[in-house]
């Protein structure tokens, strides 16, 4: 009669001893299941003060930017010299002025921007307007202190462009959406998705070699006029300041 009582007490005692071990094992199992999330998060939290600060990141970025600017300046000098030799229109000697965007309609019936500088600043109709990344549109009308920009996405916008890789010309037509349509003037476009589209180097209306967009897809089903959908580089919906290139 006393045997089983005694045996039960021993079993409970052993279980009591094993309990911390079981809890520890369970904890480890959980760590395994969560792929060490607790450890990693704790490590990240504790080591945060020692992470590389923004100063170092900024320093690296500045270094890269200076390098790129130097390269660009050298290339522009080269380009200018060659254009003079070829008797083509100058590209970067034109004066650029910055203007704030005071009103924007980038969706809807009108695709236009109103900018805070106008005739008094020397802006005139048809001046190209640039945003970060590339061409945004052209000045449609000016008042003494404001100017209206017709965006490239506007259905009535048409500009001559070319694909530098293939050297083929085309007409960039606005479609009312954030993308534009490129209608190639030649039969065989030989362009590919990912090709950059820029203003023509021989353009007289727009400054040459301004980046415009990237070809997203091609439609070669129209044999005489192959077409492509172009995603613009500069997005007017997010631009607060623009550069107007005076002609």
């Amino acid at each position: 009669m006393g045997g089983p009582h005694w045996a039960g007490r021993i079993r409970l005692k052993n279980l009591g001893r094993l309990l911390p071990l079981l809890i520890f094992g369970g904890g480890l199992f959980l760590v395994r299941l969560t792929k060490g999330a607790v450890f990693l998060d704790t490590y990240a939290f504790l080591s945060r003060p020692f992470w590389p600060g923004p100063a170092q990141k900024e320093w690296l970025r500045n270094g890269f930017s200076i390098e790129q600017q130097t390269k660009l300046r050298l290339l522009e000098q080269d380009n200018r010299r060659l254009r003079v030799l070829l008797a083509l229109k100058k590209s970067s000697s034109a004066r650029q002025i910055s203007a704030a965007v005071i009103s924007r309609q980038t969706q809807g019936w009108w695709h236009q921007l109103e900018i805070g500088k106008g005739q008094l600043a020397g802006i005139s109709a048809d001046d190209p307007v640039l945003g970060p990344g590339g061409l945004l549109g052209r000045i449609q009308s000016v008042t003494p202190t404001t100017a209206r920009v017709r965006l490239l996405t506007s259905p009535s916008s048409r500009i001559g462009v070319w694909v530098p890789r293939t050297g083929r010309h085309g007409l960039l037509v606005g479609m009312g959406t954030s993308r534009t349509k490129l209608v190639f003037l030649d039969k065989g476009s030989s362009a590919l998705p990912g090709d950059v589209v820029s203003t023509s180097p021989a353009s007289t209306l727009l400054p040459p070699n301004l980046p415009v967009g990237v070809i997203q897809s091609l439609n070669n089903q129209v044999p005489l006029e192959p077409q492509a959908v172009v995603q613009l580089i500069a997005t007017p919906a997010a631009v607060d300041w623009v550069q107007v290139q005076l002609r």
Binding site: G108, W109, V173, M175, G176, T177, E225, Q227
Partner: peptide
């Protein structure tokens, strides 16, 4: 030829 795109844009707007 852009009529399809224009219709789409007009309808959405």
């Amino acid at each position: 030829e852009s009529i399809f795109w224009l219709l789409h844009w007009s309808f959405l707007t």
